[in-house]
């Protein structure tokens, strides 16, 4: 995104900037206060961080955290509790 305080020289033939026309007067560009836009961006970022932090426990809880499982299995013991002799 271009900075509103800087004028931009269009490359010959348009290039990457083709279609973009800066119509703002020079005085207007100079008077646009940078401080007015930054709080909006900062607030968005803060909001995002707050929402992310709040949702973190849910995200972590939802993520599977499986450990190794040992499975011991038997079958057909058929009443044999111990060897005969």
């Amino acid at each position: 995104m271009q900075s509103p305080t800087k004028s931009v020289r269009l490359p010959a033939g348009g290039g990457a900037y083709a279609g973009h026309v800066d119509t703002a007067p020079a005085w207007g560009r100079q008077r646009q206060p940078r401080e007015k836009k930054m709080p909006v961006a900062a607030a968005t970022l803060c909001l995002f961080l707050v929402l992310f932090t709040l949702s973190l426990p849910t995200v972590l809880a939802a993520a599977p955290n499986f450990q190794e499982l040992a499975l011991f299995y038997t079958n057909d013991v058929g009443g044999q509790t111990e060897p005969c002799g």
């Binding site: 040992a70 499975l71 011991f72 038997t74 057909d76 013991v77 009443g79």
Partner: peptide, 30 residues
């Protein structure tokens, strides 16, 4: 070979989290 008392000793080892199941025909023979 075999026997419940030996199985109990074997299962007492320091195993990680585990599950113990039996698929049946446990109590009686043919």
């Amino acid at each position: 070979m075999g026997g419940l008392s030996k199985r109990a000793t074997f299962l007492q080892d320091d195993w990680p989290p585990n599950l113990r199941v039996d698929a049946g025909n446990l109590f009686f023979d043919n």
